[in-house]
Design a protein around this nucleic acid. Structure first.
Lengths: 130, 130
DNA sequence: TCTTACCTACGACAGCGGTAGTAGAACGCT
DNA sequence: AGCGTTCTACTACCGCTGTCGTAGGTAAGA
């Protein structure tokens, strides 16, 4: 379970990953359309560049099918999220997650349902123990 | 209280901000020493560049005292944290904080004390309401 | 006064990420 | 066979960030 030392993804690259996470393996053209839907109207070759770089970084894989390559994500959204949060917590709180979590809880607005859900998550922590 | 639309800080810049947050207003040399203590052995002029850029970005202020300028942060650690988290949540979860929070709670290890504290925070949300 | 030490201003450079153009291969239609 | 469409490979460029070096000011000691 060796974690990549760092999964370094830019903002646009992340949106490409999202397209793959949300809609499964796709061609360059597919991904481009997803990005356009989300308001990022980039050129076809730009998307190609993104995917090529992501493949070099080892976070997506491609295989030729019919005319075009189909790209799929090799990493989970969760691993990226956690990696990012970890970086954040390290950079701002020396790795202590609790204070950041506290701040997050205090500053965000949650619906009653969400609150109930969060409480349940916290409760579950007890039984699990550290 | 209009927040900057975006507080865009690099990783090294963030460490400079931390030095200012943790130890108050300081000279270039002071900040450099803080960075060295934290294992970032950068040159004096590099720190100077950081502080100059941060001032251009409007997040630190300087005033001349004796020989050297003393720099101080103009923004709070909290605002930066929230801004970063917001970016993260937007980028990965379309702005829905709860799912990310949930993932964070599930993946991090907390001490019993921290759990108690977190529970209290959640409880307080109820009384406060949205 | 000359030297030394420290400070700031300015310029430079490389790597990365976002963005795209062009060239050339491959496929299909006429 | 020739043409248009589509795909990939390559190259390029700009702005930002991390990193310094050099040059020139100024204060303080020899």
């Amino acid at each position: 379970m060796a974690k990549k030392v760092q999964i370094e993804l830019g903002e646009a690259e992340l949106e490409v990953m999202r397209a793959l996470w949300d809609h499964g393996p796709q061609t360059v053209r597919d991904v481009m359309e997803r990005l356009h839907e989300r308001g990022r109207t980039v050129a076809y070759t730009t998307v190609l560049t993104f995917l090529t770089r992501l493949e070099q970084k080892g976070v997506v894989a491609s295989d030729k099918r019919d005319q075009a390559y189909v790209y799929k994500s090799k990493i989970s959204r969760q691993s990226v999220t956690m990696s990012r949060i970890k970086a954040l917590v390290d950079q701002l709180y020396d790795g202590a997650a609790a204070p950041m979590l506290a701040q997050l809880i205090e500053n965000e607005r949650f619906t009653p349902d969400e609150i109930t859900h969060l409480r349940k998550l916290i409760d579950d922590l007890d039984s699990k123990g550290s």
